[in-house]
Simulated assay, not measured.
Amino acid sequence: MSDWKPKRFWTECAVVETDAGCTVELDGRRVKTPAKAALIVPTRAMAEAVAAEWHAQKKQVDPVSMPFTRSANAAIDKVRVQHREVADMLAGYGDSDLLCYRATHPKELQDRQSAEWDPVLDWAATALSARLVPVAGVLHQPQPDAALAELSRRVHALDAFQLAAFHDLVSLSGSLILGFAAAMNWRKPDEIWRISRLDEIWQTEQWGHDDEAHEAAEIKKTAFLHAKSFFDLSV
C-alpha cells in the first residue's frame, strides 16, 4: 500500500461567498471534491469549518484530520446524486427502530429500556407526529403506516448536506427516532448517544469491560458527535 499523500501547496486559505453558497479558496483557487465538483456548502459556518481544516494542514494533507471536508464531499458527490435512495434507506429504519424492540427478560433491563426509550417515543409522537409502538422480542412487527409515512416525508425533506449528516446519526445509533432527536435537539448529543447504547451498557455491567468493544464504541461516538455538528452547520 502506498504511503503517498498530497503535499500542501497553498499559503492563503479563504472563505468566499458565491451565488450558490460558500466555498473555500486556496491561493485563489477554489477547492473541488474528489469527483471534481465545486465544493460549495450552504452556510458560511460550514465553509469556515472546512477552511479551518485546510488551514491546519502541515507539509502533507491528511484527509483523516478533515472530517468536515469529508462530510461536505460526501454530501456533494454521493448524497446529492442519490438523494432518494439514501432517504428511502434511512426512512426504512422506522419500521425496525431500535427503540421499539424490547427485551423479554430480565425485568431490570425491561424497566431500564422503558425508562430510557419510552420518553423518546413519546417525544416523537408529538414533535414528529409519528407514534411508533414498542414490542417484546426481536421478531419484526410492522409499525403504523401513517407514522412511517410521516417519518419518510420528513427524511425526504432534508437537503443533501442535512441528509449526509442524518445518515450517520441514524446508522450509528440504529434508530431513526434518535436520529431525529439529535437533529432537533431533544437532548444533548452525548445523552442521545448513551441512550442508543443502553443494551451494550447493560451487557458491560453484567459481563465486564471489553477494551476492543469500548474502543470501537468510542470511534462510533466520535463519528456520531461529528455528524451532529455537521448537521447543525448545514442549517
Rank of each mutant, 00 (worst) to 15 (best):
M1Q: 03
S2E: 05
R8N: 03
V16W: 07
A20L: 11
C22M: 08
D27R: 11
G28R: 07
M46P: 07
A47W: 00
E48D: 11
A56W: 01
Q60A: 12
P63T: 10
M66V: 07
T69G: 03
A74R: 08
A75P: 01
I76E: 00
V81K: 15
H83P: 08
R84L: 14
R84G: 04
V86L: 13
D88W: 14
L98W: 07
C100W: 04
P106G: 14
Q113A: 05
Q113S: 05
S114E: 12
E116T: 04
W117R: 11
D118P: 02
P119S: 03
V120C: 02
L121R: 03
A127F: 07
L128D: 02
V135P: 00
G137V: 04
H140G: 10
P142T: 13
P142Q: 10
P142Y: 06
A146H: 14
L148E: 01
L151I: 02
R153V: 09
V155C: 04
V155Q: 00
A157E: 02
A157K: 13
A160G: 01
Q162D: 04
F166M: 12
D168E: 06
S175I: 15
A183E: 00
R187M: 08
K188G: 13
W193Y: 11
Q203A: 09
T204M: 07
E212D: 05
E212S: 06
H214I: 04
H214T: 09
T222F: 05
T222V: 13
T222C: 13
F231S: 03
S234M: 12
V235I: 09
